[in-house]
Amino acid sequence: MTLFYFFGAIAVAASLLVIAQHNPMYSVLLLIASFGALSGLYVLLDAPFVAVIQIIVYAGAIMVLFLFVVMLLNAPKEDTEEARLRGLVAPGVTNVGILLALALVAELGWALTRNGGESGAFPGGAVTSVAAIGRLLFGEYAFPFEVTSILILVAMVGAVVLARRERDPRRSHVK
């Protein structure tokens, strides 16, 4: 119980700081902390497989990709303080976004507390075995799994094509 609140507090605090940071580098690092806390929550939920790939794939691969890009672009100063404040205070699209988010929170709170206490503690029978997940992945979910591989291939080709530097026209005849 205390562990749940511990990890939950870390995840929420780190996610909030991701939003609040000016420097994208700190944002990425804080998001990695948030993912670590989520990984702890997965452990509490008896899902060690998800907890491990959360750290290896998310924190280890995807976030490092983000870090690469942040360093590559030499992240320019996002926007000045007063520009940010103006965006928050002035009426406009941003305010609509804030209101939408607040309404979403209010609605979620209402929906979750309306008939609170109905879904009690977790019953037993968690699936912790990695072998069971693997069997499911290559049995029932074999087709989505193969489609996923095509998705990764398409994403890889797309990323290479999009990020490729256009060839200098002066050099093209030399090559």
Binding site: F66, D79, T94, I98
Partner: peptide
């Protein structure tokens, strides 16, 4: 999820 949504709406940095 709400924090993420607020981030998309409030921040003005593509990476964030």
């Amino acid at each position: 999820f709400t924090i993420g949504t607020a981030g998309v709406f409030v921040r003005r940095n593509l990476i964030t």
